[in-house]
């Protein structure tokens, strides 16, 4: 097991996050069992006060989780590769973490998604004096607890597995994916032209639906369409980025590594690119969740939920445009500069 300060800091922050969510969960259980907004008895009034404190704890947990995740990604891509023999980017570090590494990242993203929805709903809740969405958010907190506990356990396993004496082969992971150049030019049986076309078509559709959802925040179908398109866009955008467009950052073909984008020699482009991708993954479902929620609320909360759904759609649009600029932009620049595409 490694005791690198960065991993210890992330691990400590994770423990704190779980403790905060655990504490909020105790209140969430009481809310789930006893919440009655019509009651003015001592128990209900105590619960109302506790629900505000619990919301504060979850907001802190959300902030800490974001901070720890950003620190972990920075460490995995810019600090730990220098310590793991054979690692040149996050791919080698993940290899050193064995199965705990990918699981830790998946649970982290799941936790982020859950608290992201919580945070958006809490914005609607806080906009109303009588906080009508306290029970809904209490259930979300209860859902978050096991995910964060699993993320902590996976982080522990990943830290246990790391051994700075044990070499890894970072490039083998990338280049062993294919045995011939022809294989390198195809992904899941389809050529890269096909993936790029799908990426282009879906991006245009996603931008159009995000604009429609943003401008018609009170209607449900544009948000449903936005979420559906985003779910289709996310894997295709990731494939188009890693398999085709990242080459214009690297300056070489067939280096299908998502982690090298985070390196300083590639201007740390991975941070804004993947952050934009994550924002699309979080905000599009939030937009639909809020528009569905709006339909079930009384008029003041409904207006606030519609407003938040519109904001989520606008953020999705901005994130897609940022992703597009940072992925397609370098390819176009290459074409203008050299008069041809990297693939010839």
């Amino acid at each position: 097991m490694t005791r690198h300060p960065l991993l210890l800091a992330v691990f400590t922050t994770d423990i704190l996050t779980v403790l905060l969510i655990l504490w909020a969960s105790a209140t969430a259980v009481r809310i789930a069992l006893h919440w009655n907004p019509q009651d003015t008895g001592a128990q209900q009034l105590r619960l109302q006060t506790q629900s505000e404190t619990a919301a504060l704890a979850v907001a802190w947990a959300f902030g800490l989780h974001l901070l720890a995740t950003a620190t972990l990604i920075y460490g995995m891509t810019n600090i730990l590769p220098g310590m793991v023999p054979g690692a040149m980017c996050g791919t080698g570090v993940l290899q050193a973490m064995q199965s705990g590494g990918p699981r830790m990242l998946i649970y982290r993203l799941m936790g982020l998604a859950i608290l992201w929805i919580w945070w958006r709903i809490e914005n609607v809740n806080q906009s109303q004096p009588e906080a009508p969405l306290v029970p809904a958010n209490a259930r979300i907190v209860l859902l978050a607890l096991p995910v964060f506990a699993l993320a902590l356990y996976a982080a522990w396993q990943a830290a246990l597995a790391m051994d700075f004496q044990q070499p890894v082969d970072c490039c083998a992971v990338i280049y062993d994916q294919f045995h011939s150049l022809e294989e390198a030019r195809r992904t899941l049986g389809a050529g890269h032209t096909g993936w790029l076309t799908a990426f282009g078509v879906l991006t245009v559709a996603l931008v159009a639906s995000a604009v429609a959802a943003w401008k018609t925040a009170g209607r449900r179908w544009p948000h449903l369409l936005l979420a559906a398109l985003a779910m289709a866009w996310l894997p295709i955008a990731a494939i188009a980025l890693v398999r085709v467009l990242a080459a214009y950052h690297y300056g070489v073909l067939h280096h299908h590594c998502p982690w090298c984008l985070f390196l300083p020699e590639h201007h740390l482009a991975g941070f804004p690119i993947w952050a934009a991708w994550i924002v699309v993954a979080m905000e599009a479902p939030v937009a639909v969740a809020l528009s569905l929620l709006a339909a079930r609320q009384a008029p003041p909360a409904q207006t606030s939920a519609c407003h938040q759904a519109g904001l989520a759609a606008r953020n999705t649009l901005l994130a897609v445009l940022i992703f597009l600029c940072l992925t397609v932009g370098p390819a176009l620049w290459w074409r203008l500069r050299f008069g041809m595409w990297l693939t010839g």
Binding site: T40, L45, E52, Q126, Q128, P129, E130
Partner: peptide
């Protein structure tokens, strides 16, 4: 007619 004592702190 509004139950201000039960409002969220920021609204109160």
């Amino acid at each position: 007619g509004q139950p201000v004592s039960r409002w969220l702190t920021a609204h109160r």
